[in-house]
């Protein structure tokens, strides 16, 4: 990972909220603003932001994905630190942007610099700010889903758990195969729905077997996918983004 170790005191963070959070769960981003503000950080949110482009990239449409990448890079290159509530977007920016824009050396360098200061939300809290306890409180049991890009590409597994363990009143129970794919896979879920559904059913079964009230994750794409089936099957388990959960107070 091209991150510098512990950059100098960061005073202002720029939010990249992710298209799904923007459109489906703005309260997740609102919660992030709340948390960072309480921690004494200034929060900025460039309003021209749209989407990281991974959907187009994963579908093989690299020209279009590069357009999204260049838009992101120009929008965020003056930021001190960019924080994003999505492992898959962060992985896209950190791992794929530099290669995607590699054919133009100017853009490649700019992408590299932006990638070096882009962080996933829990990673930023724990690794950069050194914070595990954000003063959150939530009564209930939760299980945690390790999203694929977050866990495997970015290696972020411990940080969300450290944060969850400090939530007053919350007990964490691990599901079997917590890092097994939920079956979303982007356009895969639309193009190969029966396979996607079968993989998702396994994940839902794992979650149900824990008896938890809540399934928490760091990627809204996974959570919408999981909640979609839980809701359809009448299960009471709620899927919640960790940023939202951490925003709950006593």
């Amino acid at each position: 990972m091209p991150h510098e170790s512990r950059p100098a005191q960061i005073k202002k963070i720029s939010l990249f909220v992710q298209c799904l959070v923007d459109v489906y769960e703005p309260q997740t981003a609102a919660s992030m603003v709340d948390i960072f503000t309480r921690l004494g950080l200034e929060v900025d949110c460039p309003t021209e932001q749209t989407c990281c482009g991974q959907m187009a990239y994963n579908a093989g449409h690299r020209r279009e994905a590069a357009i999204a990448a260049r838009h992101f890079v120009s929008l965020f290159e003056e930021a001190e630190a960019i924080v994003c509530p999505s492992g898959s977007c962060t992985a896209m920016i950190v791992h794929h942007y530099p290669q995607l824009l590699a054919s133009d050396p100017k853009w490649a360098e700019r992408a590299q610099r932006v990638a070096a200061k882009t962080y996933e939300f829990t990673q930023f809290l724990v690794d950069i700010l050194g914070i595990q306890d954000v003063g959150a409180a939530y009564s209930g049991t939760a299980t945690y889903h390790d999203s694929c890009h977050l866990a495997r590409t970015l290696g972020i597994r411990e940080q969300p758990r450290l944060l969850l363990n400090k939530v007053a009143g919350l007990s964490l129970v691990e599901m079997e195969d917590s890092d097994r794919c939920c079956g979303f896979g982007g356009v895969f879920s639309l193009k190969y729905p029966e396979i996607s559904q079968a993989v998702l059913q396994d994940k839902v079964n794992s979650i149900l077997r824990t008896g938890a009230d809540l399934v928490v994750g760091c990627d809204l794409s996974c959570l919408i996918n999981i909640q979609g089936m839980l809701h359809r099957q009448g299960a009471k388990v709620q899927a919640m983004h960790i940023a939202q959960l951490l925003g709950h107070r006593a």
């Binding site: 909220v17 959070v21 923007d22 459109v23 489906y24 769960e25 703005p26 981003a29 609102a30 603003v33 503000t37 200034e42 929060v43 949110c45 309003t47 932001q49 879920s189 639309l190 193009k191 190969y192 729905p193 029966e194 996607s196 559904q197 998702l200 059913q201 919408i224 996918n225 909640q227 979609g228 089936m229 809701h231 359809r232």
Partner: peptide
């Protein structure tokens, strides 16, 4: 898009996106 709803529901979109709310000044520091 029907492949999605064969086995899942989809939540409704928020009435107002986060960016639009931010622009309206809802999250003034």
């Amino acid at each position: 898009l029907s492949g999605w709803t064969a086995s899942r529901d989809l939540p409704p979109m928020a009435e107002c996106s986060f960016i639009e709310q931010w622009k309206k000044g809802k999250f003034h520091p």
